[in-house]
Design a protein around this nucleic acid. Sequence first.
DNA 1: CTGAAAGCGCTTACAG
DNA 2: CTGAAAGCGCTTACAG
Lengths: 338, 338
Amino acid sequence: MSAGRGAPPPTIRDIARLAGVSTATVSRTLMQPTLVAEETRTQVLRTVAEAGYTPNLLARSLRRREAGAILVVVRDIVNPFYPEIIRGVEHAARGLGFNVLMGNTDDDPAQELDYLRLVQSRRADGMITLTGRIPGLDDPAVQRVPIVLAAEPVPGHDLPVVRIDNRAAAAEITRHLIGLGHRRIAHVTGPLEQGLARARLEGWRAALVEAGLPAGDEMVAPGDFRVPSGVAAGQALLARPDRPTAIFVANDESAMGVLSAIHAAGLRVPEDISVAGFDDIPFAEAFDPPLTTIRQPRRAIGETAMAMLHALLDGSPPAERDVVLPTELIIRRSTGPA
Amino acid sequence: MSAGRGAPPPTIRDIARLAGVSTATVSRTLMQPTLVAEETRTQVLRTVAEAGYTPNLLARSLRRREAGAILVVVRDIVNPFYPEIIRGVEHAARGLGFNVLMGNTDDDPAQELDYLRLVQSRRADGMITLTGRIPGLDDPAVQRVPIVLAAEPVPGHDLPVVRIDNRAAAAEITRHLIGLGHRRIAHVTGPLEQGLARARLEGWRAALVEAGLPAGDEMVAPGDFRVPSGVAAGQALLARPDRPTAIFVANDESAMGVLSAIHAAGLRVPEDISVAGFDDIPFAEAFDPPLTTIRQPRRAIGETAMAMLHALLDGSPPAERDVVLPTELIIRRSTGPA
DNA sequence: CTGAAAGCGCTTACAG
DNA sequence: CTGAAAGCGCTTACAG
């Protein structure tokens, strides 16, 4: 096994010795080249290249008192909603010279706390939280941690956040259904302990009430954002006496379950019943039929969150603490005239 | 804005002073508590708790010469194949006291190189590569980087790898189709510059040849693992004179495209034509119909890769350098009798 | 333009 | 069982 063996990698002292200069000069050549005479610089750079020298980032970070890394925390990276956001974060981070640490919480507050500690331990300069929850936020030590919230605000606190207007977007897609002539429009909810699931329910209801259409409990079926809950909700709605002609499902994943339930019942989408989702996950376009949904600007959410965190770390003026990014109604073939 | 302001966090010197001991004793209390007298230990721990002290991990890492982090590199985190592997890595890493840095390469060798540098810069102790490619592997400095390959071996090198037997699994699912009585079984390939796509093609061909069934070019349609390529390949296969009664698609995503093409042509799955995929991505079960496929032990791939990397870092005996994990044929409703 | 020196915050032989 | 001291590998005022 060669890895781990062999000569230790060269340090700045080795380079200084080889180039016949001080470590300060080597450091300046790498950090602030304009401060170094051209001739000296050339010589140092040549030595660096020949020796294959790479500065120890741990030492640099310790000295400069910045980790050069940020942490992004999600409930579950397997959920297709998150990866594109993380990608946006990473893309922006690269441009700013930061690395990205991954934190998966499995929806467990204890793990959430562990990740907070990681920032307190200075392994990361700050964190972007997508979980809508921050344990121990009353602790002053926690309040000192630079945090930006993405996608989900944390209730009761005014941390900087980048998000979408879930209520307005839900109302918009419901109005699309109304505009198609539907009058019995059901809703399959997300887990209502999550604020964004409640916001989507409210948006749906507001649009119906505004149009004078029924929005009572008989038009609502509970879901939890996952496929099986969509199947169950779809079956329940189809079994009701006066069955809906359209269903707005709180996210795309569970909409897929609703589609299965409808097909299994021998009905067709959108001829017999229209279905709309929310999120526009990568697969939504490949659904059968392709799903009408609300597109979230996931990439932009990630990039914006990173930019906001960077400003926070910089001590820049607070700019905007509550950024609301626009969504887009994507009309595909899963919705049609009543 | 409170973040970034306020008193700086306490250091080990502050705790030592407050507890009336040396920094060495504070450090020992945290790192090797058994070496410290119980009374002293209690006193130190109380002080630590009261002050809300968290050791600076950057300083610890510098001193101990280990970053306490590993890097996992993927082509594209948005690809539904990767997140579960990353989750496995992270899960194992947590148990071993490592953090996980995320590296997205967008299939760009330059970015791949940047991530290698990150390890050389000691920000990570080693890396797990899922891209099937390592730039500059002839460079001795690169050879010194602890690397474990997951899912995809790098051709021409014998780095430690954890993988599945793509050829055997492809043959197995093809035999399932043969067992159902199909005699014209087509294949939609992945991008053939990837070794695993070639292995799946070979497995398909081997099973057919073994059964004396046609396996010529007329039974093959090119794909690239994405949905649209599946749509195109499906259309092409349906248009051929003697159309297949079953299609083995090189991965689930493109199988979804094949399903769309079949439905769009007014045919039914599996009554008119059977379809099988590969990977068992989270959505495969929710396809319409649910997809017969090969399940890759993604979580185990991630966990095993982390364990192997840890052994490598430990300098433990090389154990096994080529770990082949078992796959599983998952039979769902997309395949049926010929 | 360059170097000597201090210091970032820890850990760990070494000595007692 | 504990402390004084060295040192991990850098960066950056400070002085010249």
